[in-house]
């Protein structure tokens, strides 16, 4: 079965794009095709004129260093320190021998600490990742992605495992950092209010096909009913969770 069908999108540099759809609509697959964690069966993905579906092994790794990724389950190494987790973002830029011995250049360690500072977690550098809260873990994951010095950031349901207030904090961090660095961002979300609040542009996926693509100003409740193929329900909203 195909997860995606006749998807045709152009994303300009620096745009904050939110991809919306029910689970199973193909959001994850779309995101993972971009760094080829999933191999597309046909079609092209062009980045600066280069078809990344045709990259060889070494070229693919070089491409991946330019694409940071954030996951729903953070995907940190729980038993390692926060700093080591963030430094893992430098692996694509570090020789095998150096990285196996843990001998990252001083400039990389400085970069990693700066990235942690940007997510307000510098003082946690030597804590073990499993001692952090969910929101802190996701911020470490953001720092790891930033440490790659990427051009593109992919975020696959980055707040689905977090509570409402933390969800907003993470989205704000993401938005602020990406503005500062001029990153192009693709975020998968299924919460309507988060999508509308943070996106420049919304892409709606339903059963593997793009059913909506436009600026956030054109989006109405009706748009989401079309994307979801059903009426809107309260649990489609993350809410503020304010006390």
């Amino acid at each position: 079965m195909q997860a995606l069908r006749s998807v045709n999108l152009t994303i300009p540099d620096g745009q904050f794009v939110v991809i919306v759809g029910l689970s199973g609509a193909g959001k994850s697959t779309l995101l993972r095709c971009i760094n080829r964690l999933v191999e597309p069966t046909e079609g092209q993905i062009l980045a600066d004129g280069v078809d990344i579906t045709r990259l060889g092994e070494g070229e693919l790794r070089a491409w991946r260093t330019k694409v940071g990724m954030i996951f729903q389950n953070f995907n940190l190494v729980n038993r390692s320190t926060v700093l080591r987790n963030v430094l893992a973002g430098r692996l694509g830029h570090t020789s095998t021998l150096r990285s196996l011995l843990g001998l990252f250049p001083r400039s990389d360690v400085e970069l990693a600490l700066r990235c942690l500072e940007r997510v307000q977690l510098r003082d946690k550098a030597f804590s073990r990742a499993d001692q952090l809260s969910g929101g802190q873990k996701q911020r470490v994951a953001i720092a790891r992605a930033l440490c790659q010095e990427p051009k593109i950031l992919l975020a696959d349901e980055p707040v689905a495992s977090l509570d409402p207030p933390t969800s907003h904090l993470i989205m704000q961090d993401l938005k602020r950092i990406c503005r500062e660095d001029g990153l192009t961002v693709l975020v998968n979300l299924h919460f309507i209010d988060l999508a509308v609040e943070y996106a420049d542009r919304i892409i709606g996926l339903r059963a593997g096909e793009v059913v909506f693509d436009g600026p956030v100003s054109e989006v109405t409740e009706k748009t989401f009913e079309e994307i979801y193929g059903r009426s809107i329900r309260p649990d489609d909203f993350r809410g503020r969770g304010d006390r």
């Binding site: 940071g68 990724m69 893992a88 973002g89 692996l91 694509g92 990285s99």
Partner: peptide, 13 residues
Amino acid sequence: EAMRAVGANRLQA
């Protein structure tokens, strides 16, 4: 998966 995504090679991952 995260290690593959950052562009790490097999040994690094």
